[in-house]
Design a protein around this nucleic acid. Structure first.
Lengths: 168, 168
DNA sequence: ATATATTTTCAATAAATTTTGAAAGTTCAA
DNA sequence: TTGAACTTTCAAAATTTATTGAAAATATAT
């Protein structure tokens, strides 16, 4: 397979993949393009390579920057801004996990702990199932929360390295 | 907070939560409703409680069944079909992980291993970055794959219990 | 068999999301 | 300053995705 074809396939699949994870297709495609670009590239490069509008590129690169996956770089002597993606997949994943935890898991756990205290007869079947379900999810979520914290923080620790080697 | 209000909040948030995970809002809401319903409920119950059409309920309950999260139950003497959700959150998560792995991770890994062999000069910067990125993602994905397999299979193992207690 | 209850399908419609592109905003060199 | 290069914004348009509802299919009781 030739590079051009492989690139196109990767970008397209990565975009499709993204849509299964609540990420919009274009953002994932731009990310894919940046991941395989050895050097920083410009808005115009992205527009051209993905055939999308300037506004679209602008919005989605901003999002990628908000997610901490891409940075703007200034190249001396150049007027335009360039974009560069973090290439270390472990760091990429850690960053995504960190953001999603902050944006989704933490608020959900907060809500669940509020919902756990409802007034009503605990003998009542409906009340009982509701509190049990909420408690179950909250407990599970709390555990996940801790596991993810360890993953995020233990970036350089021996324990994680060992665990990963164990599963290699 | 009263049960009715808490229920409504839970269903609505669970639905919003779902959309961040590539699951449609209604499917997540039906799942939420079933999770807090102590007894099996019918299509009409779901239609009424969520104010959605029959066709919509039918489609989304089918999907929930495909995901292995909900089952149809027949109640003796009743003409209608009833739906019942798996309530054990650990089982629910395992099931979701299992399905997503099958539907998304496995095909992606397959594609990546194809993309890893491209023809071209390995000294070329573009070729080099492409193969490195693909290899990096594949390696990471492969590890994740193994970790998930362990989680899925080790359902009853002491090791997992210990790990979870460790993080509690 | 027939009528009745229930479920499924799917084309049409509605809603939500994404994309565009042109205008407004910004930066910077001369 | 001015104006050229570049970036950002955002209302309108296009696209994608979800929902409806009525007709068709299926199942069940009599």
């Amino acid at each position: 397979m030739k590079l051009t074809e492989a690139k196109a396939q990767f970008i397209s699949s990565w975009g499709a993949f993204g849509t299964h994870w609540g990420i919009n297709r274009t953002m994932a495609q731009i990310h894919a393009l940046l991941l395989i670009s050895p050097d920083p590239i410009t808005q115009d490069d992205i527009m051209e390579q993905l055939s999308i509008s300037r506004g679209n590129v602008n919005m989605n690169t901003r999002d990628l920057i908000d997610w901490g996956l891409v940075e703007r770089v200034l190249i001396p002597g150049e007027r335009k801004e360039f974009f560069l993606a973090e290439k270390d997949i472990w760091k990429v994943s850690t960053q995504i996990i960190k953001e999603r935890k902050k944006r989704e898991l933490d608020p959900m756990l907060k809500l669940l702990s509020q919902l756990e205290q409802i007034d009503g007869d605990k003998k009542n079947k409906e009340v009982k199932q509701f509190t049990e379900t909420i408690a179950g999810i909250r407990k599970f979520g709390g555990q996940a929360d801790k596991v993810l914290d360890v993953m995020i923080k233990a970036d350089e620790s021996w324990i994680l390295g060992s665990l990963l080697k164990f599963f290699k």
